[in-house]
C-alpha cells in the first residue's frame, strides 16, 4: 500500500512536471498514460521499492525520448508527405506506445520476480 501510494505520488509529480514543461500534446499524452498504467500495474506487486522507482524513471525517460523523436519525425515528414501521412502516424502512435509499454512492463516484471519455478 505504501509502495503504491509513493508510486502514485511520483507518477503524478512527473505528469504535472511534464505538463508545465509544455511538451507537444502527444508527448504529454504518452507520459500521462505510461505513468497511470505503469504505477497501477507494477507497484502493487511484491518487490523492492528501489527497483520499482528505478523502472518508473527509466520508463519515463524512454517514453519522453521515443515520443519526442517520433513526433519530430512526423513533423519533418509532414512537410513532404502532406497531412494524410501525418494523420496516419498520429493514429498509429497510441498503438506503438502500447507495444513498448507492454514490453517494458513485462521486462520490468522479471526484475521483481522470484527465481524460476520448476515449470518451464
Amino acid at each position: 500500500m505504501k509502495s503504491m501510494t509513493l508510486g502514485l505520488a511520483v507518477g503524478a509529480f512527473i505528469i504535472i512536471f511534464s505538463y508545465f514543461l509544455r511538451f507537444a500534446d502527444e508527448v504529454f499524452q504518452a507520459v500521462f498514460v505510461f505513468n497511470l498504467l505503469f504505477v497501477c500495474m507494477f507497484f502493487p506487486l511484491n518487490g523492492s521499492l528501489r527497483r520499482k522507482m528505478a523502472a518508473l524513471l527509466v520508463g519515463n525517460f524512454i517514453c519522453f525520448t521515443w515520443n519526442t523523436l517520433f513526433f519530430m519525425f512526423v513533423n519533418a515528414v509532414s512537410t513532404y508527405a502532406g497531412g494524410g501521412f501525418t494523420a496516419l502516424l498520429a493514429f498509429i502512435s497510441p498503438f506503438l506506445n502500447l507495444l513498448w509499454f507492454v514490453s517494458f512492463w513485462s521486462t520490468s516484471l522479471t526484475f521483481l520476480a522470484e527465481p524460476e519455478s520448476g515449470k518451464w
Binding site: T110, A113, P115, E116, K119
Partner: peptide, 8 residues
Amino acid sequence: DGRTRAQR
C-alpha cells in the same frame, strides 16, 4: 507462478 522467462 514465478515464470520469469515466460513474462518476456
